[in-house]
Amino acid sequence: MVKTLRFLFFLLIVRPLVLIVLGLNVRRRQQLPSQGPAVIIANHNSHLDTMVLISLLPLRLLPKLRPVAAMDYFLSNPLLAWFATNIIGIIPLQRKVKGSRNDPLAGIIEALDHEEILILFPEGSRGKPEQLGRFKTGIAHIAQRRPEVQFVPVYMHGLGMALPKGEALLVPFFCDVFVGSALLWSGDRNSFMQSVNRQITDLASEGSFPSWE
């Protein structure tokens, strides 16, 4: 029942919104993962980021798609928690892990072992609209523990204009989506993070975007 609701929500609401109201310019769509386990890592500016990334993959993969989202934000009230868990299908992640005894990545590792495709925003929050923040090293820990899993970097532009943090009114703008090539665990956290950061800045400099202040 909930699975059907989730399917209908993405088919009838999210896809028309993303594909018609917003509109996507996608480069190298074929580099997106076609099966799990895999992790899509993307820059984060808007709640729409997750919707766009989910709409990029075929609907038959929907049951396998799991966005990783901040537990403190999405599980803050029961209604949002129900929606985030059942309809969006999030894996809740504790952002502050200092002093915590249990494994913060357990949910993510388990999902990868079930051959799911995760959507992860390593900047950690939506940040300032249309500005690229630093990618945090959590992804390196995941890569280290599951070295066979592919990490596909994606850069998105325009969604921070369409629906920035703190705004509820959606204004249509075209969204550019640049897909990078898949990365594997390099054997070392620093070099892994370096190649991730290099790819994402390369992707970001691929487009010539008008200023937005």
Partner: peptide, 13 residues
């Protein structure tokens, strides 16, 4: 057109 030209954050509405 709007996605092509520079716009201001203040003008979203």
């Amino acid at each position: 057109f709007l996605s092509m030209i520079p716009t201001r954050r203040a003008d979203r509405r």
